[in-house]
Amino acid sequence: MPRLGLNTEKVVREAASIADAEGLETLTLARLAGSLGIRVPSLYKHINGLGDLHRRLATIANVDMAAAIRDATVGLAGSDALRACCRAYRAYASQCPGRYAAAQRAPDPDDPDQARLRETGAELTSLALTVLRSYSLTGEESIHAARILRSAMHGFISLELLGGFGLPTEIEASFERLIDLLDKGLRSMGSAPAA
């Protein structure tokens, strides 16, 4: 018997809760169905398998991260915008680690089922490029800078989430120094004036 009131939104919300609390790798259709009090075949009324579920989580993550970064950086430029962007990115990843993990794989450009994911990912990239605009980066240099920024943030966040920082030095101070290094490096790449 189907669970009364169950819909796609509730299924995805429960999946997000599981992924954030227990890790994306623990999210299986069996685990999700059990949490919802239904059998696995009933999930297919709402989603098209685990891949579809991961795409939906990634889309939500992109939308939410874009909103957080947009809100944090509005009216800011240069190092102030960079610092706000990095802090918002880290805060989202820390609060929603399962959704964040789902958003790390680039969507397939040829898969029509991934159109919405591509769209939300492009919005997030556009925000990063807007933050980087103050550094006088253009063309391919701006893409390299966006990749560098994402790689630095992802590396730090991943180590932090996995408990990889065991030395007694303040983690927050290390994060702020990372942003300082990024700021200096981006200025060097774009020959932008100091803020």
Rank of each mutant, 00 (worst) to 15 (best):
I60Q: 14
A16G: 08
K184Q: 14
D80K: 15
L129D: 07
G166R: 12
K45H: 13
L50W: 11
H144Q: 07
Q95Y: 09
P168G: 14
M189G: 02
R87I: 12
L6A: 05
L186C: 02
G34T: 05
I148K: 05
A152E: 00
T59M: 09
T130G: 10
V12W: 14
R13G: 04
A61W: 09
G75L: 11
L57C: 02
A194Q: 09
A103K: 02
R90V: 06
T130W: 11
P97C: 06
D64R: 15
L181W: 14
I69N: 02
T26I: 08
G163N: 07
A106R: 10
Q114Y: 10
Q114G: 01
E25Y: 07
A61E: 07
E123K: 13
Y89N: 01
R118Q: 12
L178K: 05
R39N: 09
E140V: 02
R105C: 14
L53D: 01
V131N: 06
R39G: 13
L124H: 05
Y89Q: 05
G37N: 07
S134K: 13
S174V: 02
G121N: 04
V40K: 05
G190D: 00
F156N: 03
R118V: 09
A15W: 15
S126W: 07
P109E: 09
P193G: 10
L162P: 04
L76K: 12
D64W: 09
Y100E: 06
G78S: 05
F175V: 03
L32K: 07
E9P: 00
Y100R: 06
S158L: 11
T125I: 03
A30R: 14
L43W: 10
A88M: 11
P107S: 04
L117G: 01
A101I: 00
E172T: 10
P168Q: 08
A192G: 00
L82G: 08
Q104E: 10
M189F: 08
S191R: 11
L149V: 07
E22L: 05
P41E: 04
A61T: 05
S136H: 13
L182R: 00
L182W: 02
G75D: 12
S94Q: 13
L36V: 12
L6S: 09
N7T: 02
T138K: 15
E9W: 12
S35F: 04
S188D: 13
H154T: 09
A192N: 00
E119K: 10
N62H: 14
A128L: 05
A16L: 11
A173P: 00
L82C: 08
S42P: 01
A192P: 00
I157H: 06
Y92P: 00
A66L: 06
V11D: 03
G164C: 11
Y100H: 15
